[in-house]
């Protein structure tokens, strides 16, 4: 016992060092794998309010640009409205331009909740964004987020008044996207470490891909509606030893400037997931 106490006294600085490191790194790595605690992020009440105060100082710097973008976005969204509806009757032909929200032929599938970005980064390995709306405004974990010009990310954590978004500038965003031109699809990844460029993986190289072809979401998983803009094909290069293209996408969203975003609420998500759960499991893969 005496020896133990002597040992502890001798190495107390080192032990304290190890202990503090353990706390810090355990917090960090547990947050990477299972995000449990919202208290350690900017979505908690105190830090969320500090961020809101910071935003109230800085947001007017971008006011004019934000306004211009919003006007543009309104126009695009108005044109898009029919895309947000699913037909529930099959024996009538409807002219899509005249659809109203109250129409009984179409049922609304997606609604959008507008939000302001309080804080965001684009230069880290995993980039997050704090929004000024939370659980009380109906935000739930896993909802999709987009800006006027493209996909932004998915909701990662929610508190009562704030929410934290994991942007597509992260390790594995894994969003279902496709080329508009021929419908070939793959996953969105971010391996370029540049705020404007992301990757589209899983496109086989038997067909050439046109530069500046549009890329949009495919609508799998029920997080994003089909046809949401992602960006444009920027560069195509072969992957050595594999029959795949490495497609780089110039993202529509400019993460250096984004101020206003929309959170997507899928009213029929439960139905889609329930249906997809009926797919029998492949016995070979188990």
């Amino acid at each position: 016992m005496k020896n133990l106490i002597a040992f502890l006294r001798r190495f107390q600085i080192f032990l304290l060092f190890v202990g503090l490191q353990f706390i810090a790194l355990a917090t960090y790595f547990s947050s990477l794998s299972f995000p449990r605690s919202q208290y350690l992020t900017t979505s908690n009440k105190v830090t969320g309010n500090i961020m809101a105060a910071r935003n109230s100082v800085t947001h007017f710097l971008h006011q004019e640009e934000t306004n211009r973008e919003l006007i543009k976005a309104n126009k695009i969204l108005h044109e898009k409205i029919p895309e947000n509806y699913i037909r529930i009757s099959s024996n009538e032909i409807i002219v899509r331009d005249t659809i109203r929200e109250t129409d009984t032929i179409y049922e609304q599938q997606y609604t959008y909740i507008p939000a302001t970005v309080l804080k965001s980064t684009y230069d880290k390995r995993n980039n997050y964004m704090t929004l000024n709306i939370g659980r009380k405004q109906g935000i739930k974990k896993g909802m999709g987020v987009f800006s006027e010009s493209g996909v932004v990310g998915t909701v990662y954590q929610v508190s009562d008044h704030f929410s934290l978004v994991k942007t597509i500038l992260s390790m594995n965003p894994n969003i279902d996207i496709m080329l508009v031109e021929d419908g070939s699809f793959g996953f969105l990844k971010w391996e370029t470490h540049q705020a404007r460029l992301a990757n589209l993986t899983g496109i086989s190289n038997d067909k050439p891909i046109k530069k500046w072809g549009k890329v949009m979401t495919r609508g799998g998983g029920g997080i994003f509606p089909r046809g949401l803009n992602v960006g444009k094909v920027y560069r195509v290069s072969p992957i050595e030893g594999r029959a795949l293209w490495n497609v780089e996408i110039l993202l529509g969203t400019n993460f250096k400037k984004v101020q206003k975003v929309y959170v997507i609420k899928n009213l029929l998500k439960g139905e889609q997931i329930q249906l997809e759960s009926n797919i029998p499991k492949d016995p070979d893969n188990e």
């Binding site: 706390i23 810090a24 960090y28 350690l40 992020t41 900017t42 961020m51």
Partner: peptide, 28 residues
């Protein structure tokens, strides 16, 4: 100074969603 470093790093972590790496590096 180790404890102060930890507290300072953690305060920065809380404000920038880094979950403890600022604290860890500052303790080093």
């Amino acid at each position: 100074s180790l404890i102060i470093a930890f507290a300072m790093g953690f305060a920065i972590d809380l404000l920038s969603d880094t979950f403890g790496i600022h604290a860890s590096a500052l303790v080093v």
